[in-house]
Design a binder for these strands. Structure first.
Length: 328
DNA sequence: AACGTACACAACCGCGATGTG
DNA sequence: CCACATCGCGGTTGTGTACGT
C-alpha cells in the first residue's frame, strides 16, 4: 500500500470513527427508534416523500419528524414503501434470471436487481441465501464450488427453462389446476400469451415483466448506459435470443470476479441448452445430462414452482460424477 | 398446549464511493 | 485540495411465523 493510499485509509478510518461518534450522540439526543417500522412511521415517511421527494435522507428524517436515521428511512422506502416494489413469490422466470446473473456477477445484488423490475437487492439476496444456499448445504457442497455451479447450470436451470416453457404453452390453451400449481405467472393478462407470438419465451418474458431482449448485453460492464432497460424490449425475442449471450462453459468464472468483455473471447461453447432444443444439444462435462433427460421429462413439472422442487437424488449423482471427473 | 426449530424477510451495520461547499 | 455529509452496497443479525414434536 503506498503512502497516499495509507493516508487515505487513515483518513477514512478517523472519519468513520467521527461519524460513529456523531451517530451515537444524535441517537442519545433524539432517542432514535430502531427495529420494525410502525404503520404511523410508514405513513409519515410516505407522506413526506410524496410531498418533498426523496434524497437527503438524514435531513429528511429530521424534517419528517421521524426518530429514525436517514439510513433507516432510505432502506424502508427503497425496500418496502416505494410504490413500484413488487412483493410476493419469486417467479420461475425471476429465479432463472437470478441464477443466470449470479453465475455471471456473483453477489452483486443491486446489479442483479436492476434486471428484475420491482425486486430489491435485499429481496434477491434473501432469496439466494434462504433458497439457493440451503440446497448447497443439503448437497453438502460449497455454494461457490464448481460442482454446485455446474449443478445449477446443467440441471436446475434447464429444468426451470423447461417448466417455464411448459407453463407458457399450457397458458396458451387453457388454465388447469396442474398448470396453476406449476406456474407462478398465471395472474398475468391472457392477451399477453397470445398464440400469435412466434415462441413461448416472449410471452414468458412479458408475463414476468422481465427485460427480455435479444440485444440486451448482460456481459457488458460499460455499455455506456446506466439504465438497464435502455434498449427496447422486442416482442419477437425468444428465449434462445435472450440466453444466447456468451456464457463461460468452462467454469472459468468460478473465481467470482466480474467478467470483462474480454472474458467472453474464448467462449466457443455458449450455453446451447437455451437454443430451443436445449435438452438435445446440451453436453455436460460428464455427459450426464443427456442420460438424465428422460428422467427429467417426467420429473420436473412435478411439485411446486420453486427451486425446492428442482433438485433431487440425481443432483447428488451429478455431483458425484463431477467430483470423479475432477479427481477431487 | 407448550416448546423447539426452521424459515423468510425486514432491518441494521460497516465500509467504500461519491457529492458538495 | 480538503473536510465533511451523504449515498449505496454487501454482509449480518433480528424478528415473526409456520411447522413439527
Amino acid at each position: 500500500m503506498n503512502v497516499e493510499k495509507r493516508s487515505s485509509v487513515v483518513q477514512t478510518q478517523s472519519r468513520q470513527e467521527m461519524e460513529m461518534e456523531v451517530e451515537v450522540e444524535v441517537e442519545m439526543e433524539m432517542e432514535l427508534r430502531r427495529g420494525p417500522w410502525t404503520v404511523e412511521e410508514d405513513l409519515t415517511l410516505m407522506n413526506y416523500i410524496t410531498t418533498h421527494g426523496e434524497g437527503r435522507w438524514n435531513s429528511l428524517a429530521r424534517c419528517a419528524g421521524l426518530k429514525r436515521t436517514g439510513k433507516s428511512c432510505r432502506l424502508r422506502w427503497l425496500n418496502y414503501l416505494r410504490p413500484d416494489v413488487r412483493r410476493g413469490n419469486i417467479t420461475l422466470e425471476e429465479q432463472l434470471l437470478i441464477l443466470e446473473l449470479h453465475s455471471r456477477w456473483g453477489n452483486r445484488w443491486s446489479k442483479i436487481a436492476q434486471y428484475l423490475p420491482g425486486r430489491t437487492d435485499n429481496e434477491i439476496k434473501n432469496y439466494w441465501r434462504t433458497r439457493v444456499q440451503k440446497h448447497a448445504k443439503q448437497l453438502k457442497c460449497d455454494v461457490n464450488s464448481k460442482q454446485f455451479k455446474d449443478t445449477m447450470r446443467y440441471l436446475w436451470m434447464p429444468r426451470l427453462v423447461e417448466r417455464i416453457q411448459a407453463a407458457a404453452a399450457a397458458n396458451t390453451t387453457r388454465f388447469t389446476a396442474d398448470t396453476a400449481a406449476a406456474s407462478s405467472h398465471l395472474t398475468l393478462p391472457p392477451q399477453e400469451t397470445g398464440a400469435s407470438l412466434p415462441g413461448n419465451a416472449a410471452a414468458i418474458a412479458n408475463q414476468a415483466h422481465l427485460p427480455f431482449n435479444s440485444n440486451l448485453d448482460l456481459t457488458s460492464e460499460s455499455s455506456g448506459s446506466s439504465e438497464p432497460f435502455a434498449t427496447q424490449i422486442s416482442p419477437l425475442s425468444d428465449l434462445a435470443d435472450y440466453y444466447s449471450l456468451p456464457v463461460n462453459h468452462n467454469g472459468n468464472d468460478d473465481d467470482g470476479h466480474v467478467n470483462s468483455n474480454n472474458d467472453n473471447n474464448n467462449d466457443s461453447n455458449n450455453w446451447d441448452y437455451f437454443q430451443g432444443g436445449y435438452s438435445d444439444s446440451i453436453t455436460s462435462p460428464c455427459g450426464y445430462f443427456n442420460q438424465a433427460a428422460d428422467f427429467q421429462q417426467n420429473q420436473w413439472y412435478v411439485g411446486g414452482d420453486s427451486l425446492d422442487s428442482l433438485w433431487n437424488v440425481e443432483d447428488i449423482y451429478f455431483l458425484e460424477q463431477q467430483m470423479k471427473n475432477n479427481l477431487i
